[in-house]
Design a protein around this nucleic acid. Sequence first.
DNA 1: AAATAAATGTGAAATATCTTACATTTTTAC
DNA 2: GTAAAAATGTAAGATATTTCACATTTATTT
Lengths: 226, 226
Amino acid sequence: MKINKCLDCNIKSVAAQYLSEDELTHLQNQCASVDFKPGEVIFKQGALSSNIIYIKRGLVKLHIQGPHREQIIKITKSPKYLGIPTTIHEKINQYSATALEPTSVCFIDIETFKNFIYNNGKFAYEIVVDLCQNELKTFKQCVNRTQKQIKGRVAEAILFFSNDIYNNDEFILPLTREEFANLTDTSRESVCKTLNEFHVDKIIELDSKKIKILNRKLLETISEKG
Amino acid sequence: MKINKCLDCNIKSVAAQYLSEDELTHLQNQCASVDFKPGEVIFKQGALSSNIIYIKRGLVKLHIQGPHREQIIKITKSPKYLGIPTTIHEKINQYSATALEPTSVCFIDIETFKNFIYNNGKFAYEIVVDLCQNELKTFKQCVNRTQKQIKGRVAEAILFFSNDIYNNDEFILPLTREEFANLTDTSRESVCKTLNEFHVDKIIELDSKKIKILNRKLLETISEKG
DNA sequence: AAATAAATGTGAAATATCTTACATTTTTAC
DNA sequence: GTAAAAATGTAAGATATTTCACATTTATTT
C-alpha cells in the first residue's frame, strides 16, 4: 500500500479533472493505491463500506449473492469509479467487487469524496452524469437478461467483451464457464453447450478461453433477436 | 398547465429543501405543474428528453420496450424525481413513464436543474444519494427477477405494493394482469394462475384487482426462497 | 512427477414456463 | 342500452432450460 501522487496522476477520472490543485493535494493525503491479482476481492458484500474505489488499471466484476446463485451484475474496466452507490449513504456493502485481471485501484476516503461533491459543482455534475449512465446501462441489461433466451444472452456477452472491453474480435475470456453462467443468468452446462453450438456453426472460433468472432453480423442478429 | 409556486410548495424533495429563496424563485419561473390521469403518458421512450420530472402526487410506472415485450422496470410514487438518467447527458428518452393513478408532476427545465447541481453542493449531494439508492434497488430487483421463479416474483410484487406503495395489507392493484406480467417478467396467463393459486392456498384474498394479504409470513417465505 | 482438486464437456431425464386456443367477464364507446 | 373492445380465466400441448450423472481435461499442490 503506497501513497499515490494524485497531482501528477495521468489517469484521472473525468470528474477529478475538475479538481483544483488544493483539492488534489488534499486527495493525495486521503487516498491509497492498491494492486489486486485476478480473483482477489476488492470489497465484499456484507462488509462495512468505507471507501470509494477508483479503478486506475484493470478489469473488475461486481457481483451479488442471490437467493439461488451468485450473479455478476456488471463487468467494468478502468478508468471508473466503483462502489459509489454502496458507500454513499450505506453502511454495509450491498455487493462485492473482484478483480478479473491485474488491477490497480485507489481507495478514496468517503468524507473527502463527499466534500468534493459539496464544494465543487463541476465534480458533482460529472459524478451525477456517471451515475445516470450506470442506471441506464443497468436498465438495458436487466431487460436483456430477462427477455432474451440463452443464445441471445451469450451472444450479447461475447459482443460486450469484444466491443466494450477488448476492442478486438479476438480475446481471452477473463471468466470461467461458471462465472460466464453467472453473468448470463444460466447454468454452466448451458453456457458450454451454447458456446460449442456457436463454434460448430462457425460464428466463433473457440479454444477453451480464447474466443474469436468469425461472423459478427450473425452474432449481432442473435443478440438482438434474443 | 399552470405555473406552480415553488416557494410555498410543501411537498418539496429532500434536495429542494436545500434551495435558497433566490433559487426557488428562479425555479418557479422555469417549472410547470401538470396533472395526469391513469394511463396517460408522462414521457415516451424515443422522444426528445428536455425536462426533469418531479412527482408531487401519484404513482408512475417506468417502462422499456424490450426485444419481446414491454417491461416495467420500476414503479415509483411521490415524492420522487423521475427521468434524471434519461435527461442528463441524453438527448432521447431511454424509457417511458406512464401514470398509474391520478398524478401531478412538475416539469423542471434541465438547465435550471443543472445549475442547482453546479452551484448548490447540498442539492447536488442529495441528488447523488437519490441516484445511488436507485441503482442499489435496480441491482436487487434485477437479481430477484432473474433468479426467482414465478411464485417468488409474484409474491415479491404483492409485498412491494403492500409495503412500499400502500402501507397496507389490503390494496387495489393499480395494474392490469398484462401489466402485472410485464412487472414480474412473465406471461399474463402465468400471473392469473399464480394469483389464483395464492388465493386457493389462502395466502391472499383476491377479488379482481383487490388484494388482501392473509398470510404474510408465508408470502415472505415464498418471496425469499423464490 | 504424481496426486489431488478444479474446471470443462456432453447426453438424457425432469421441470418450469410459454404458447395456443377458447370461454367468460368487464369496460368503453356509440 | 346495446355493441364492440378490452381484460380475464383456464386447460392442454409445446418448448426452453435445468438438473443430474458421469467422462475428460486442465490446473494446483506436495
